[in-house]
Design a protein around this nucleic acid. Structure first.
Lengths: 243, 243
DNA sequence: CGATTCCTTGAAGGTTGTCAACGTTGGTGG
DNA sequence: CCACCAACGTTGACAACCTTCAAGGAATCG
């Protein structure tokens, strides 16, 4: 544990460096629904200066589940920087400003710097962690639990970045897209959203989320929708390591 | 694309270096069901020289979904190498031999070498890709599709590493664990497995998988269980970029 | 041999999907 | 300004997939 502080310092340094590189990179303004990798053939590395984006995964099935949702300040495309093939595509959900590192071997150069290499592995593990949480939620929570998880996730991420301060935020996903993200159908999403509103837990209207009862929302995101009479240890705690 | 070959060379070099480091690291022999990170307090980086392992995610719910399954030669714990907190734990599924890089800041040192840093990001993106596929399967395939996906995934991974050559392999997961991996219950896994056997598609008995009809299995892993009368483009193709 | 875990089977019920229709919204062009 | 269109939201009825509960049998291990 004695080497933990220098590690942290290196991460901070790497973060700063990467930010500087993105800052001096060309930035584009995109409208809602545009592909991030539209221009060139090769994959790039992106950073959302503003706006939301999301990552699809095309199935031969015809379905297009959403694998991840990116918020302002997120870095996109670090995975896949080494791969050749591409099953996914990333699209903006809103109008957005994107900073791009377009060099084909961008990752090769970034990784040459040790703090930045560390920070990149850190970012990759963050994305992995998001996938893990979503996966856990989808495979073991019912619809209400998943919805609660999603709404809380966006809420805490926005809050941590100081993009919001109150109990409400803008969620630029249609109900169809929410369904594709959570592995449910529109119809069901709609019904669950209504029941959540009628129970004064969350309100989602006109792409505007208002959290009415944070405690119950947290509880549902952990335990699923059906009320479980829990004896011990159900005190909701919202602490997340903000490394 | 002109810089692609050197990138590939660097990856090969990084792979070799990492393998060498693991080779000269202490290796332990574990029995089935043991924690990988049992000994020390800090997290380590592991490599399975032999045996299977899997990663759980504890939910306050009481459930323990399985997030990933590791096969021989897989590297474990690169994600989380930077994190402090830990929601997951990794356990062996069989008796196993594990090579360990136990240094608290192992990742910091590894990343200092550029080819190795690149290879590590490559490994991280591989794991991410597995999560993405599993997520896509769980959120948009029915039980038969998910099971087909899983069985095919292990099959191709083992085949690519030349650990098997025929149409059958050893799968050290109980039906309960398969359920936790695919987001289904034991009972249903059991029924679906039986129907797959009765239809001469796959046989799973005594932890032994035998693929009887690869073509139909691939089709189900892509389109789900219910027979869809597809007009065009349903020729199953098993090509995967073996980067 | 006992004990535990695992597999198996049945019946009943619930959460979710499908289908279909209609209302709403927002943008576009005449 | 209005008509049109497309995407999105909403609602109901019904079916299907899957879960839950319960119990008995098989396998594994000390």
């Amino acid at each position: 544990m004695n080497t933990l502080v220098p590690l942290h310092d290196q991460l901070v340094l790497g973060k700063r460096k990467l930010k500087a590189i993105f800052g001096s990179s060309p930035s584009r303004t995109l409208k809602a629904g545009e592909l991030l990798g539209s221009a060139g053939a090769g994959e790039g590395i992106y950073r959302l200066r503003a706006g939301w984006a999301c990552q699809f995964h095309d199935l031969p099935n015809g379905r297009r589940p959403i694998l991840d949702v990116y918020l302002p300040a997120d870095v996109i495309g670090l995975d896949g920087g080494v791969h050749v093939r591409r099953l996914e595509d990333v699209r903006t959900l809103t109008a957005a400003i994107v900073e791009t590192i377009s060099i084909e071997n961008g990752l090769v150069e970034l990784v040459a710097d040790r703090p930045m290499a560390l920070y990149i592995t850190f970012l990759l593990s963050l994305r992995q962690r998001r996938s893990d949480c979503l996966l856990a939620a989808i495979s073991s929570l019912d619809a209400r639990g998943r919805l609660a998880m999603m709404l809380l996730d966006f809420y805490t991420r926005l809050r941590r970045r100081k993009l919001i301060s109150g109990p409400n935020y803008n969620l630029p996903l249609s109900q169809v897209q929410i369904g594709n993200y959570l592995g449910l159908t529109v119809v069901h999403i709609n019904r669950v959203l209504q029941s959540l509103r009628s129970e004064q837990i969350v309100d989602f209207e006109k792409h505007r989320v208002t959290i009415l009862d944070l405690e119950r929302l947290v509880f549902m995101a952990r335990n699923g929708g059906k009320a479980i009479s829990c004896a011990i240890g159900c005190e909701p705690a919202l602490n997340e390591a903000a490394a």
